[in-house]
Nucleic acid binder design. Structure first.
Lengths: 95, 95
DNA sequence: TTAAAATAGTTTATAATGTAAACCAATTTA
DNA sequence: TAAATTGGTTTACATTATAAACTATTTTAA
């Protein structure tokens, strides 16, 4: 795409991009935090987190907070790199 | 979506965004020009131009250049506004 | 004490979307 | 005059996004 470099389809998705945007600044976030901030449904969020994990862009750790399940996410180095590249490529479209 | 304003799905598409990006600067472009610049297939481009037109974001004029068909596109005011809003909203995700 | 509601998710079904392949019609080239 | 090129459109298919339905546990209320 000449000046229009391809945009990583994994990141070019509203919800996944929002999640990555959050994770890149906090470096660790619970499922419920992401759900509140993105205002996504739990189901949708769950699916998108899976995809990001399978891509190696985030790590997901499942544990317990007291007796309730707790899902903690953090961005990986590959995730940071992919995000930065995505943003860089995107600039050619919007500037 | 709190700080994450919804991204116009019509613009949140690589090819359509590239087209809008081109049209916003040139204000008039032929089908073949858009095809070259975006490196899209003709079929894909045709479909996406249709969508942008139906949304009122671009105008499409069909005529003839000599004896060959000629499709000319230009962005509308609604298109400019939508694009600017999209970019504005997107910033919250990537900055 | 037990039924209802809330929490914290996952799985699944469906609709929407993006894309290339196939196609059409005319024109140019060999 | 047959083959290739131009300038597209239509259609079929695979991928994606999303909500709805579901599971499992825990807390609250009657």
């Amino acid at each position: 795409m000449s000046v229009f470099k391809p945009l990583d389809p994994l990141l070019h998705s509203q919800l996944r991009l929002a999640v990555m945007s959050l994770l890149i600044s906090v470096e660790e976030a619970e499922f419920t935090f992401l759900k509140e901030k993105t205002e996504a449904t739990a189901g949708n969020l769950s699916v998108q987190l899976d995809k990001l994990e399978k891509a190696g862009y985030i790590g997901i750790e499942k544990s317990f907070k007291g007796k309730r399940p707790l899902t903690t996410c953090r961005i990986t180095q590959a995730g940071v790199k992919a995000f930065e590249e995505y943003v860089e490529n995107l600039r050619n479209y919007i500037e």
